[in-house]
C-alpha cells in the first residue's frame, strides 16, 4: 500500500435517489471514490448499486429524483469523455447498423477533436489494445458478426477511446461465460493500470469483485452497509449481511448439497 494522500476523485455526500413513488433506490450515501483505486460495488437485485453508478456518471433518467451532492476533485467531468461506461449487455450499447470501428472512432472524433481518418486509426489501435483479433478487418465488422465477448471488447474500446479518468463497469461480465469473463476482467485490470484510470466495478459476484478490487462497498436496499479494503470486507466482514454474502458464495471447495442424499438410500 502506498502512503500517497488519498485524494477523492469524486465524493458522494448524502446521495439519495428515488424513482417515482417507490422506496428510495439510494438512501443518504456517503462515499469517496479515490483517484486511481479499483472500487467494487457489490449487492443483490435492488441494492442500488447500478443506480449509484448511473448517478456518478450523470446518467440517471430524467424521471429520477435525487438529493445530496456529487463533488469532483478536479474540473467537473464530461460524460463519455471523462467517464467511460461499460454496461452488462454489449449488444444494447452498440448500433446494430454501424460498423464497430466507426462507433469507436465517433467517440474519439467527438471528444478528442480528431479527423475521421485519425479517429479510425485510433479505433484500430484501441481494437488491438482490447485484444480483438485482426483489428484492420474487424473495424469494418457489424455487431452481429461478433461473439458476445468480442462485442464487450468493442464497448470497452469505445469507453476508453477518449481517455477517461474514471471507468465504470456495471455487471460488464455477467452475460459472459466463465472463461470469457476472466479474460475481460484481466483486460479491464490491465487497461486501468496502463492508463492510470480509476475503476468503479459493479457486480453481484462477491468473488469476482474480490479478485479485482482494492476496496469493496456493500449495498443493500439502497443503503451503504460496509466499506473497506477487500481483505477486510471479505476476511473480516463486520455487517451480518456481508457475512451472509460471504457464506452464501458457492466456491470450488463448498460442500456438496446432496451429501446426505446419496448415503441414505444407497445403504438403506
Amino acid at each position: 500500500m502506498s502512503a500517497a494522500p488519498q485524494v477523492p476523485l469524486v465524493a458522494l455526500r448524502g446521495l439519495t435517489v428515488a424513482y417515482g413513488d417507490d422506496a428510495l433506490a439510494l438512501s443518504a450515501i456517503d462515499l469517496d471514490i479515490r483517484a486511481g483505486e479499483r472500487l467494487a460495488l457489490i449487492g443483490e437485485s435492488g441494492s442500488g448499486k447500478s443506480t449509484l453508478a448511473l448517478a456518478v456518471a450523470g446518467l440517471l433518467p430524467a424521471s429520477a429524483k435525487s438529493a445530496g451532492t456529487i463533488v469532483w476533485g478536479g474540473a467537473p467531468p464530461l460524460g463519455g469523455r471523462d467517464i467511460g461506461f461499460v454496461f452488462q449487455n454489449p449488444a444494447g450499447s452498440l448500433d446494430p447498423v454501424m460498423a464497430v470501428g466507426r462507433q469507436v472512432a465517433e467517440v474519439a472524433r467527438t471528444h478528442l477533436g480528431l479527423s475521421w481518418t485519425d479517429a479510425l486509426a485510433r479505433a484500430r489501435d484501441l481494437f488491438g489494445r482490447v485484444g480483438l483479433p485482426d483489428p484492420d478487418t474487424l473495424v469494418h465488422a457489424y455487431p452481429h458478426q461478433l461473439s458476445g465477448g468480442q462485442k464487450q471488447r468493442v464497448t470497452i474500446a469505445a469507453a476508453i477511446a477518449a481517455r477517461p479518468k474514471l471507468l465504470i463497469a456495471d455487471e460488464a461480465t455477467s452475460a459472459l461465460d466463465t472463461i470469457v469473463q476472466a479474460e475481460i476482467v484481466a483486460l479491464i485490470r490491465r487497461l486501468v493500470a496502463e492508463d492510470g484510470m480509476t475503476l468503479l466495478f459493479v457486480s453481484h459476484d462477491i468473488a469476482l469483485a474480490a479478485e479485482l478490487a482494492d476496496r469493496i462497498a456493500v449495498l443493500r436496499n439502497g443503503k451503504l452497509l460496509e466499506l473497506g479494503s477487500t481483505r477486510q470486507v471479505i476476511g473480516r466482514p463486520q455487517d451480518p449481511y456481508t457475512q451472509s454474502l460471504v457464506v452464501a458464495h458457492i466456491s470450488l471447495d463448498s460442500p456438496p448439497l446432496f451429501a446426505a442424499t446419496t448415503d441414505i438410500p444407497v445403504n438403506g
Binding site: 466463465t178 472463461i179 459476484d205 479478485e211 481483505r231 471479505i234 473480516r236 458464495h249 466456491s251
Partner: peptide, 23 residues
C-alpha cells in the same frame, strides 16, 4: 478438483475464488 481436458482446466482456472481473502 483435477480436470484432465484443456477446457476443464481453463474453466477451473477462470472460476472466481474467495481464497486468500477469507483469512
Amino acid at each position: 478438483d483435477a480436470p484432465q481436458s484443456a477446457v476443464g482446466k481453463a474453466l477451473v482456472a477462470a472460476t472466481p475464488k474467495l481464497h486468500g481473502f477469507t483469512g
